[in-house]
Design a binder for these strands. Structure first.
Length: 852
RNA sequence: GCGGGCGUGGCGGAAUUGGCAUACGCGACGGACUUAAAAUCCGUUCCUUUCGAGGUUGAGGGUUCGAGUCCCUCCGCCCGCACCA
């Protein structure tokens, strides 16, 4: 018997898979396709445990679906543009292109070591000119369709990155990567018109039934649709004020208007009024972070203007500038109805404004309904509201909006929170925006024959700002239209642009005439299963959904959603360790000695902190390379799937990885010993099946359960069931030829069930079991539904819901027999002590409950 | 503040539809093998107990013959967010 040598085994099978191009696929219209992909990695240099988990999950799906007969596309690529490459260039004097290329080579090699069943011939790299050439074509197509446009706008400026951030990339008023407070800056920017598809993006969520509810909800909130009315108030200075409200029914309860500090009217007033100017400055100083907003008191300043109520000629509402009104939403102006909005009430109490209730709850009367310090936002009947009195909220909404429309003072409007996606970045390492600015022709698209606009290699990274802008010659080009001297666009695209369409590129990665070969994308798209981190729940996934809609509208692609199935995996976590002085320590620096954690070298007592997501800054990382070296890829893969459900966080422990390692060795020993001993060629079906029957049934149950678990992403349960069945087989001690026949069936089944999870060792042992065909070419095992149920059922017997005994009776016995057998049970008899039960509930094959 | 989720042994977790709570693994303990260790194998391992049994799924209540699962109140933790009018 040979010892399990994972190094030899894993290298052997990886070589065989590569040499035979086992996972390379083509369109085959005779077979059902299945497209599974994981979010492609940023080539940072080495893979981390998050990658191992992500790609293991995807590979299990790919291998499983393949064995179920699908034509499986499982590709891989590199999200290769982005800031870290420029930071590396800045810090280490390496060119971003070289740094990226080397990182990709290293990580590709690491991924191959994991034994992933990937079609490597379809690899895409976003910084490859062949890839971004197609991206530039897409950009120009969008521009032609009016879906990419330029406008001057205030942008979030990250002073450390010297770059614009999307709204989504600003977290708590700080850059999402640098953590530096974001400044406001006015720039000419390129935008993609995501708002053109706001309704479709929202409506489409309803059909994505294989997406996590959580992600759908996050996108729904992000799109933020609301139905309201735009009301036009006449101002005392002769101007008018546009206000958006979702509660026009409360219009008669209005006691003030308020505008945002950045509202044009406020800006105007500030030029002549120092107090207002000072107030606006104060508002800008209070950060946009949640904490500061929550703690900030609702404050405002009177403008001196009043707004005329559209229906009440005698009512003039004071107009405030207020810190809680946002310019970005609606019209940047509101009317305040204190009785029915908490923020408005807080404000009204502070500035001693009128509080008029206009919605009466059903269980109150006008005399006993008072608003003190809690606004009422519930349902009810309109009061104090002229022609709206007596209506409910919905009716009042309709009526008031009709009246406002008739007066010419308002109209119904659907508002979205979603804004257009700003894609310009003042950066070098990104896809160049392929346009030329000409003083006489304006913005001119780079002609297709001149694509791609290639990034110049000779750039300097010795200071802040955009290296493309600073390049001496690159931006100077003749105008393609008039041939006069003109200037290239020096902005590059947000890297989310590159990742918004890569999934479609995988379908025809070498196609040169267009971004996608239509026939290929028609066959493969959409992606049936996409797997990645929940951190992309809004940005990447929403942009991809926007892109598919845009491409569909331009008729470049047929499908309507990019990913029909989405799975978001949990994070990989590890305990944290800190010295008394407060320095983070690597797990490898720490040993546990007699329930105390100590520094491995100095012996110093260490504080063990809670488990957190593995991160370099907290040093609680375990390098996958070391694990794969020490235990092999299969062990790492098995551990990734054991114990933790894939959508929850996974706790990395050394003991856990050893448990996986032991299990693989146990399987190895079991099957090696068997295949050495038994003549596998001379087996035949048994004559006497009775003693084998329980194991045989167990085998079929296991196949059914594991299949069901894999279909539902319950990989931890699938592993547990395989282990359970393995225990059954090793506890089976009948020593006959027939038993060996049975064992052969069982071992083969175990290997088949394990093959998507630990493909190398499964292939090796499968071969040793005397199977000619490779496991990856073998169909998933079938189960016999008639064997899933035993002939007898163990029925629990309860007295008043308490378990009191168990009986074994023939399966599907009728209720009378079951009841009779249950009542005969001695525990039941004792409990009854001669009395008659009040009631007996019989659930066939499961439980009998005797009520006394 | 709003929205969503979660809470089960010493630990990770299992438990189709409301029907035998604690599968599987880890850890721990005991034993076998060994000069010894590692590895391996076998066994024990929710709590209490007068050994009959009784109790236990964050806490309390409710619905039900029956609740980890459904409903209400509360506590704790995690995630998301935009004071969205």
């Amino acid at each position: 018997m040979s010892r399990y040598n994972f190094k030899i085994t894993e290298e052997k099978w990886q070589r065989i898979w590569t040499e035979n191009k086992c996972f390379d696929v083509n369109e085959d219209h005779t077979r059902a396709k299945y497209y599974v992909m994981e979010m492609f990695p940023y080539p940072s240099g080495r893979i981390h445990m998050g990658h191992v988990r992500n790609y293991t999950l995807g590979d299990v799906v790919a291998r499983y679906k393949r064995s179920r007969g699908f034509n499986v596309l499982h590709p891989m690529g590199w999200d290769a543009f982005g800031l870290p490459a420029e930071n590396a260039a800045f810090e280490n004097n390496v060119h971003p292109a070289d740094w990226t290329r080397e990182n990709i080579a290293a990580m590709r090699q690491q991924l191959k070591q994991m034994g992933l069943s990937i079609d490597w011939s379809r690899e895409v790299t976003t910084c490859d000119p062949e890839y971004y050439k197609q991206g530039q074509r897409l950009f120009l197509t969008l521009m032609k369709a009016g879906l990419a446009y330029r406008k001057e706008s205030w942008v979030n400026w990250d002073p450390e990155e010297n770059s614009v951030l999307a709204n989504e990339q600003v977290i708590d008023g700080k850059g999402w990567r640098t953590g530096v407070p974001v400044e406001k800056k006015l720039l000419n920017q390129w935008f993609f018109k995501t708002t053109a598809f706001a309704e479709s993006l929202l409506e489409g969520l309803a059909h994505l039934d294989r997406w996590p509810d959580k992600v759908r909800l996050m996108q729904e909130n992000w799109i933020g649709r609301s139905e309201g009315v735009r009301v036009n108030f006449g101002l005392s200075n002769g101007d008018s004020l546009e206000v958006f409200t979702t509660r026009p029914d409360t219009l008669f309860g209005a006691s003030f208007c308020a505008i945002a500090a950045t509202h044009p009217l406020a800006q105007d007033l500030s030029s002549t009024d120092n107090q207002i100017a000072a107030f606006i400055e104060d508002c800008n100083r209070v950060g946009t972070s949640e904490a500061s907003i929550e703690n900030a008191e609702k404050i405002g300043i009177e403008t001196g203007l009043t707004a005329r109520h559209p229906f009440l000629k005698s009512k003039d509402l004071p107009v405030f500038i207020a810190n809680f009104v946002l310019m970005d939403y609606g019209t940047g102006a509101i009317f305040g109805c204190p009785a029915h909005d908490q923020r408005d009430l807080d404000f009204a109490l502070k500035y001693d404004l009128e509080v008029t209730p206009v919605i009466l709850p059903v269980d109150k009367s006008e005399d006993n309904f008072l608003i003190s310090d809690a606004a009422y936002a519930g349902a009810g009947t309109l009061i104090n509201s002229d022609f709206l009195n007596g209506l409910d909220i919905k009716q009042a909404f309709k009526r008031v909006s009709k009246e406002l429309t008739a007066l010419g003072r308002g109209q119904a409007e659907t508002s979205y929170r979603l804004r257009d996606w700003g894609v310009s970045r003042q950066r070098y390492w990104g896809c160049p925006i392929p346009v030329i600015h000409c003083s006489s022709c304006g913005v001119v698209a780079v002609p297709d024959k001149d694509l791609p606009v290639i990034l110049p290699r000779d750039v300097a990274f010795d200071g802040p700002g955009n290296p493309l802008e600073k390049h001496p010659t690159w931006k100077h080009v003749p105008c393609p239209k008039c041939n006069q001297p003109a200037r290239r666009e020096t902005d590059t695209c947000d890297t989310f642009f590159d990742s918004s369409w890569y999934y479609a590129r995988y379908c025809s990665p070498q196609h040169t005439a267009q971004p996608f070969d239509r026939e290929a994308s028609d066959y493969w798209m959409p992606v049936d299963q996409y797997i990645g981190g929940v951190e992309h729940a809004v940005l990447h996934l929403l942009y991809s959904r926007f892109f598919i809609r845009a491409l569909n509208e331009i008729d470049l692609i047929s499908c309507e959603e990019p990913f029909t199935g989405l799975f978001t995996q949990g994070m990989v976590c590890h305990e944290t360790y800190k010295t008394v002085a407060g320095n983070w320590l690597f797990p490898s620096d720490v040993i546990q000695d007699d329930k105390v954690w100590k520094h491995a070298e100095t012996g110093e007592i260490i504080n063990k902190g809670r488990s957190e997501k593995m991160s370099k800054s907290k040093r609680n990382v375990v390098d996958p390379a070391e694990i794969i070296n020490a235990y092999g890829a299969d062990t790492a893969r098995l551990y990734m799937l054991s114990d933790s459900p894939p959508d929850r966080d996974l706790e990395w422990t050394e003991a856990g990885i050893q448990g996986s390692w032991r299990f693989l060795n146990k399987i190895w020993r079991m099957i090696e010993r068997f295949s050495d001993k038994v003549d596998l060629s001379a087996r035949s079906a048994p004559k006497d099946f009775d003693s084998l029957s329980p194991l045989h049934k167990e085998m079929h149950k296991t196949i059914a359960n594991v299949t069901n678990d894999l279909d539902r992403f319950h990989f931890n349960r699938a592993v547990a069931r395989i282990r359970e069945f393995t225990n059954c087989v090793s506890n089976f001690h009948v020593e006959t030829e027939d038993a060996d026949w049975m064992r052969t069936q069982c071992y083969n089944t175990i290997l088949q069930l394990l093959s998507p999870i630990v493909p190398h060792i499964a292939e090796e042992l499968w071969q040793r079991m005397g199977n000619d065909k490779c496991l990856y070419q073998t169909k998933w095992p079938q189960w016999d539904p008639t064997l899933l149920e035993d002939e007898t059922a163990v029925v629990a017997i309860q007295v008043n819901g308490r378990l009191r005994g168990k009986i074994e009776i023939p399966r599907d016995s009728d209720k009378e027999l079951t009841e009779a057998r249950a009542l005969a049970d001695e525990n039941v008899q004792r409990a009854l002590s001669g009395k008659k039960p009040i009631k007996v509930i019989v659930v066939p094959n499961k439980v009998v409950n005797v009520v006394i």
